[in-house]
């Protein structure tokens, strides 16, 4: 009966090897699943640095700007400059943060200067643009 015992032992070994192999395969599968999960997560926006999204918006906005500005009639190029000038003063949001909530006196000072400059631009830019645009009239018939 000894060979049977040996056979049994061998069988058990085979079984053990098979189960280890199966376990290994399971493990690999699990790893793949994990990686796939991470990828899907990444594609939906989870693991990516917000900078990448900002950059994407920036690049797309450049293209939007490109097509929109080409559609501007040359007669309105001066108002285009004054209005772009006014909207770039949206930098005022940075100034508002500095003045409104900063703890440091220096930062508040810098923010205040920025706030005044940007306000000059916002009011001056939009008002001068509307003054210009009000002048463009069609032939009265």
């Amino acid at each position: 009966m000894e060979p049977t015992a040996l056979e049994r032992a061998l069988d058990q070994l085979d079984g053990a090897v098979a189960s280890v192999r199966a376990a290994m395969e399971n493990l690999q599968a699990a790893e793949v699943a994990d990686a796939a999960g991470a990828l899907a997560h990444g594609a939906s926006g989870g693991a990516i640095d917000p900078f990448v999204f900002r950059l994407a918006i920036f690049v797309l906005a450049i293209f939007v700007g490109y097509y929109v500005v080409w559609s501007v009639t040359p007669a309105l190029h001066t108002p285009l400059m004054s209005v772009t000038n006014a909207i770039s003063s949206v930098i005022v949001v940075g100034a508002l943060l500095a003045v409104g909530i900063s703890a440091s006196g220096l930062a508040t000072g810098f923010g205040f200067v920025a706030l005044v400059l940007a306000s000059v631009n916002i009011f001056g830019g939009f008002l001068v643009t509307s003054r210009m645009l009000a002048m463009y009239k069609k032939k009265d018939k």
């Binding site: 943060l97 500095a98 900063s102 703890a103 930062a107 810098f110 200067v113 940007a118």
Partner: peptide
Amino acid sequence: MPQLVAAFHSLVGLAAVMVAAAAMYAPESF
């Protein structure tokens, strides 16, 4: 108008410098 637009550009430029300076001295607020 050309002078005015140039002057307004300079204000945006300086405002950008000032906002960055504020961020340098009080980064927590930003």
